[in-house]
């Protein structure tokens, strides 16, 4: 299927891979924000995940252990954030920014000596006959297993938020932490767990860059993916399936503009690069204008400090 010199099937298949890091990170951040915490340290958690995963995979020769270590690294970072914002009641915006600064520095220190090292390969999953289905097989069934994990996480996040008691509590805490507290829910614990999930997902996203997509280690290699993840959560108006859509759009625009160039079509690169952000603003405006805050999905307590006064 060719449109304007671009093979749409290949385009979709590629953007799924290219978007996986931001999809993972955004899914995690969504849960954290749903619980009412705005963690701007996604970039810092991603880069720590990238290096922890890389080191573990190189030394154990196992990508799976690498991803585990990456999740652990992300969780460790998120717990610093949780300690500061939940227990010590610090401002979330400032703490998140500090977390990114800290993560970028620490990852570079930990990663000294890993330049030019090649990690063990993460092969594509063999799905046998499924791969042979025309079009769909090419798009969906020829990826490495982390792509499927990321899709699974989106589905699981959606299901848990929507259908389980845990999801209900999480949303209640994010909507009105004082009421949730009055009902006897442990606001800080819920938020810490949500943050840890966010950290784990960000770590996985980072490791996907350093272990699968690139694969190599270099300083600052996440190159702003964490910030894009934050934008995607907003774009998605805090809904898991829309996060998937948002991640594919954001990742897809980059892939598309590179492909248009490869096809010899002159495009204003900067205009295309800023387009997703403009669209995000537009989405925000439309949603807030049309139905007000409640329908928008923005957790009402987002970014506010919780302190149980009674």
């Amino acid at each position: 299927m060719m449109i304007g010199g671009i093979d749409i099937v290949v385009l979709i298949a590629t953007l799924m891979v290219a978007s996986t890091p931001i999809l993972l990170a955004a899914t995690g951040e969504l849960v954290a924000e749903k619980s009412g915490v705005l963690n701007l340290g996604v970039e810092g958690m991603m880069i720590m995940g990238a290096i922890c995963g890389f080191i573990a995979a190189v030394h154990t020769d196992s990508p799976a252990l690498g991803f585990l270590a990456a999740a652990a690294g992300g969780i460790a970072m998120s717990l610093i954030f949780a300690l500061l914002t939940q227990l010590l009641l610090s401002n979330q915006v400032a703490t998140g920014l500090a977390l990114t600064l800290f993560g970028l520095g620490l990852s570079s220190l930990v990663g000294q000596g890993y330049n030019g090292v090649k990690p063990p390969p993460s092969p594509d999953v063999n799905l046998g006959p499924l791969e042979q289905i025309p079009v769909i097989g090419d798009i969906l069934f020829r990826h490495d297993w982390m792509v499927y994990v990321s899709l699974g996480l989106v589905a699981a996040t959606w299901a848990v938020l929507r259908y389980t008691r845990a999801g209900l509590i999480l949303r209640a805490v994010g909507e009105n932490h004082d009421a949730a507290h009055a009902l006897g829910y442990r606001v800080r614990l819920v938020r810490t767990l949500a943050l840890a999930y966010g950290g784990a997902c960000a770590g996985l996203g980072g490791a996907y860059i350093s272990l699968v997509r690139v694969p190599q280690w270099s300083d600052g290699m996440t190159a702003g993916s964490g910030w894009i993840a934050l934008a995607i959560v907003v774009f998605a108006s805090w809904r898991p399936w829309r996060v998937l859509l948002g991640a594919y759009i954001f990742g897809g625009v980059t892939v598309l503009q590179l492909r248009l160039q490869a096809a010899g079509i002159a495009i204003p690169v900067q205009l295309l690069s800023m387009a997703p952000y403009l669209v995000t603003i537009l989405v925000l405006v439309i949603m807030s204008a049309r139905r007000g805050r409640a329908a928008m999905g923005a957790p009402a307590s987002l970014g506010r400090i919780f302190h149980a006064s009674s």
Partner: peptide, 24 residues
């Protein structure tokens, strides 16, 4: 076939650029 990445070092983007060229 030429693709401009608009970066000296963003491994993810370079990977995408390479893949775009390969698919072309």
């Amino acid at each position: 076939k030429i693709v401009w990445a608009y970066t000296w070092g963003d491994p993810g983007k370079e990977a995408d650029a390479a893949q775009a060229l390969i698919d072309a």
